[in-house]
Design a protein around this nucleic acid. Structure first.
Length: 932
RNA sequence: GGGCGGUUAGCUCAGCUGGUUAGAGCGCCUGCCUUACAAGCAGGAAGUCGGGGGUUCGAGUCCCUCACUGCCCACCA
């Protein structure tokens, strides 16, 4: 028998092998059913579909990924083993800016640039990079054992997904939900592209508020000697000022309304205008208006029909509109402008001022709000649906349910205050916008197929838009596009019918708006048009991209600090995995993944779970050792006894009935916990069962039954061995979603390398029996456990050497004596007892222990530490008195007796009488001690 | 400026719709190489549940308030 496992568990020895095996054998491939075939569509297997949030193709695995993937893998493995048609779909995101940046950096090292290469060559270069280095993160995922369907791996720029992107764009354009125009956008001068509001991160920045005096001039353009002082945080933008606004009711300045000012530095005449938006108590109460460089100013400009003067180029250098400052970087220009103002006596004040400055999410460069012509999605109609999908409907049902629930509010709050979405990016890597500009009539042609002529005037002088789409536009479409949308035809709709809507999305809150919200908007919008398999129209509930969203927390370091490269506290999951094994790291994450709580990742805990893996490993060694010994005398466990939920005969030994009852209750709890995304509860429950109940108690007891001697009762030995192996095998299945490698290895060994399936992952997940638990077994075992523990404690207290065996004296109700008698061997072995002497009164020794069920003494000649004993008893008495007083107080309270449920009152009464008894016994024992 | 969390043992965290004497892991103390496992076994100590007030027969749990702390959103120059 190949049951020779090494003594210590070594994850590195087994994990690579299984990871490769799972991929090679395509174990988790989920074929697309043919839904034209009614039977195949309704084969009773409710699918469980889950999309992997596609990592950037440039990405490397970090702890957040590992948490995300561990959670998804646990749920997918669990659902699969529970009989669902499980599909976990992986892929990578082309990640426009990130990938382009990476390749550009490479080019820079080679002394060239994308501009030198030209667009076509550059894009080809990125593809080449992708083919060589892209998707390394998916290989890391394979190593972690993610049970995804690798046959379906996608890339967001794959042809069929690009078709979906184009269709979505064209359709929205036709529906007049996409428009192009010049507005203030967030411009990153380093990436040289517009970015969306979400891609701007704000940081507190200590800067200044400059107060600048704008001279008031008369009708002839001469200075009147009066000034209007404005305040600004960005003096350089004054080059583009076109007015100064004051509040319509501001008495201080009203007399200046209609007058003109001379814009310092530029010497341009600008008007003083009135606008409600101006806040009288901020700064000086007068605002310089720069429509091309500030969203508020832009709005004012619109209201007052003012021109917009863009004074900066794509790199945030001052352009020709900036007169003498042309060519200067924005911050150089700022200094120069301030210096010039000061020289001209126009700088009224410089005040320290802290404000929020927007930075590019990607490269952290300060974003420049800047007038620019971009493409936008008119988002409100999509948002309306996305709101309806999350709010409770008329029947109280929600089409999409968030866990933790609090994120629903966050989502709705954002969705209800949403702004139009800038979807164009001035990049080369991405889905190029399918719009063509006509140089003849200057109109735009948007088309599904590349046009050869302008749709408006027929001119062939057309050129394609150079912008590409925001990466999130394509990833937002994934739930529909990966299942074939828009080509949903009668013959070709199996994937969509079977797997859409997906069951669940598991992700971090950091991409709640970026991705989750966009998927909901786009999914509801486009899937809504796809008829149901029977041809009927699709409700909102069936249009959503997923029915549930589980948002997990952040993985922090052991000190609760956010992991970051600059702080140098990043824990590389691969490193930890190498050290402790994937299973231990997975179990760490799972056991700490309490919904809504960040995870402070502590390797001490991982060490603990490696020990857990080792524990199971050694339990397996123990089992195999006994299986082998049994084989020598012709006893073998029938494999038919494995693979299901173990059951035992009513007359089976107590420990067998007990461990089986425990297994069932564990399975029940674990299933319930997973149902509610309580990975932590599920993991802890299994841990407690495996280590606590199974190893610490059951294995120790069962040793008594594993008799392989000549005189053995072979039937009894075989029965014990069968329960042992079958409970262990079921427990392995219970654990396998959490620790897939270890359980796979041992499971194959249990079946002596001839398993009933290719993998433990393809077996059935343990489910508790419907029949009620064996309460008697649980109660009897609990009594014996407390007896054994009390003996051990007492032995320790009176200083019995570890090795010594002693008789005990036991006073216990006659109805409980049989339980002890029938299991005396258990008590003797586990508590190092030679003999249980039943007594009506404890006579031995000075030290005894009492519980509500029994009094106990250990028969052992040893001087008792009277002082220690007195201390212990005094402490106990104090504890009892306190408890008793509390109980009496409550029981004396008539409203408590009247209002509290009977069971609570009864429970308290029982506790009161038990405590009273224990207290009396403790007092008596204290009195019996010799005086000091 | 809005909104949402958190505060429970030395550390990291559980504690469901309020119900008997608040739990786990790690750490700590004590004793054991008991042939599955020293990555182990056995026993133990340790918490006025952030402060204050309220509701209730009963509050870690519900309400108010204060303090500290974290996060998200926001166009005040």
């Amino acid at each position: 028998m190949p049951h020779d496992l090494p003594k210590a568990y070594d994850p590195t020895a087994i994990e690579d092998r299984w990871a490769e095996y799972w991929v090679r054998e395509k174990l988790f491939a989920q074929p697309t059913p043919n839904t034209a075939n009614q039977e195949e569509r309704l084969d009773g297997q409710s699918p469980f579909t889950i999309l992997l949030p596609p990592p950037n193709v440039t990405g490397r695995l970090h702890m957040g990924h590992m948490l995300n993937q561990t959670e998804m893998d646990i749920l997918t493995r669990w659902r699969r083993m529970s009989g669902r048609r499980a599909l976990w779909l992986p892929g990578t995101d082309h990640a426009g800016i990130a990938t382009q940046m990476m390749v550009e950096r490479q080019l820079a090292e080679e002394g060239t640039s994308r501009q030198k290469l030209g667009r076509e060559a550059f894009v080809e270069r990125v593809w080449e990079w992708k083919r060589h280095y892209g998707g390394a993160i998916l290989d890391q995922m394979k190593r972690l054992g993610a049970s995804v369907d690798w046959q379906r791996e996608y890339f967001t720029m794959d042809d069929h997904l690009s078709v979906a992107v184009r269709e979505a764009f064209v359709r929205l354009y036709e529906q007049e939900l996409i428009y192009r125009g010049a507005y203030i956008v967030n411009w990153c001068p380093r990436c040289q592209t517009a970015i969306s509001d979400l891609e701007v991160v704000y940081d507190e920045h200590k800067g200044h508020l400059w107060e600048i005096r704008y001279p008031v001039i008369d009708a002839n353009g001469e200075d009147t000697g009066e000034f209007l002082t404005v305040a600004t945080t960005r003096p350089e933008t004054m080059l583009g000022d076109v007015a100064v606004a004051i509040h319509p009711e501001d008495e201080r300045y009203l007399h200046l309304h209609g007058k003109k000012l001379r814009l310092p530095v530029m010497n341009r005449e600008i008007p003083v205008i009135l606008d409600e938006w101006v806040s009288r108590d901020f700064g000086t109460g007068a605002v310089k208006v720069t429509p091309a460089h500030d969203p508020n100013d832009f709005a004012i400009g619109e209201r007052h029909h003012l021109p917009s003067i863009n004074v900066m180029d794509d790199t945030a250098h001052i352009n020709a509109e900036g007169g003498a400052y042309a060519g200067l970087d924005r911050y150089v220009a700022r200094k120069r402008v301030v210096a010039d103002l000061e020289e001209q006596g126009l700088l009224a004040a410089v005040k320290d001022y802290t404000n929020n400055v927007g930075h590019c999410d990607r490269c952290k460069t300060v974003v420049e709000p800047r007038l620019s012509t971009q493409w936008f999605v008119k988002i409100q109609p999509l948002a309306d649906k996305a709101i309806a999908a999350v709010k409770p409907g008329p029947n109280g049902e929600k089409a999409i349910r968030f866990t933790p629930e609090q994120y629903e509010k966050t989502y709705l709050n954002w969705m209800e205050n949403i702004h139009d979405w800038c979807i164009s990016r001035q990049l080369w890597w991405g889905h190029r916008i399918p719009a063509w500009h006509c140089s003849t009539c200057h109109k735009i042609t948007v088309a599904r197929v590349d046009p050869t002529a302008c749709a408006h005037c027929g001119s062939t002088q057309i050129t394609q838009e150079t912008d590409v789409l925001d990466t999130w536009f394509s990833s937002g479409l994934l739930p529909v596009s990966v299942f074939g949308w828009p080509n949903i035809t009668a013959e070709n709709r199996g994937g969509f019918d079977a797997f859409y809507p997906t069951s669940l999305l598991v992700t971090g809150f950091d991409i709640l708006f970026f991705w989750v919200a966009r998927m909901i908007m786009l999914g509801c919008w486009f899937a809504g048009d796809v008829p149901m398999p029977d041809g009927s129209s699709r409700s909102l509930a069936d249009s959503v991209p997923f029915r549930e969203v589980y948002i997990h927390a952040l993985v922090r370091d052991a000190n609760r600090e956010k992991m970051s490269k600059t702080k140098g506290n990043v824990i590389d999951p691969i490193e930890i995995v190498k050290q402790y094994g994937t299973d231990a790291v997975r179990f760490t994450l799972a056991s700490m993944a309490s919904p809504g709580t960040d995870i402070a990742f502590n390797v001490a805990r991982t060490e603990g779970y490696r020990a857990f893996a080792n524990k199971i490993w050694n339990a397996a060694r123990f089992l195999f050792m006994n299986v082998d010994r049994a084989a020598e005398i012709g006893i073998a466990v029938d494999p038919a006894a494995l693979g299901s939920m173990p059951a035992v005969a009513a007359e089976a030994p107590l420990e067998e009935r007990w461990i089986v009852a425990e297994l069932h209750s564990t399975a029940k709890k674990v299933n319930q916990s997973l149902e509610n995304y309580r990975y932590d509860d599920a993991a802890n429950t299994i841990y407690q069962f495996f280590w606590g109940s199974f190893c610490d108690w059951y294995l120790e007891i069962v040793k008594l039954r594993l008799d392989f001697s000549e005189t053995a009762d072979k039937a009894a030995t075989k029965a014990a061995l069968t329960t042992l192996v079958s409970v262990f095998e079921a427990a392995l299945r219970l654990l396998s979603p959490f620790m897939p490698f270890l359980t796979e290895e041992i499971w194959h060994a249990v079946y002596d390398e001839d398993p009933p399936a290719k993998s433990i992952a393809l077996t059935r997940y343990p489910q508790a029996a419907e029949t009620p638990a064996d309460e008697a077994a649980l109660a009897e075992m609990s009594l014996l456990q407390s007896l054994i523990v009390e003996v051990r404690t007492l032995r320790k207290e009176i200083g019995v050497e570890e090795k010594a065996v002693t008789p005990i004296e036991l006073r216990i109700g006659t109805h409980l004596r049989p339980v002890v008698k029938e299991n005396s061997a258990m008590v003797e072995r586990l508590a190092r007892v030679t003999e249980v002497r039943f007594a009506d009164q404890i006579t031995t020794g000075l030290s005894k222990h009492s519980t509500p069920d029994f009094d106990l003494a250990v028969v052992y000649e040893r001087t008792v530490d009277v002082a220690a004993e007195r201390e212990r008893l005094t402490r106990d008495i104090a504890k009892y008195e306190k408890g008793l007083a509390a109980a009496e107080r409550q029981l004396g309270n008539e409203s408590f007796l009247a209002k509290a449920p009977a069971q609570v009152v009864e429970g308290l009464k029982k506790q009161e009488s038990e405590t009273r008894l224990l207290m009396e016994k403790a007092r008596a024992a204290l009195d019996a001690l010799p005086r000091a």
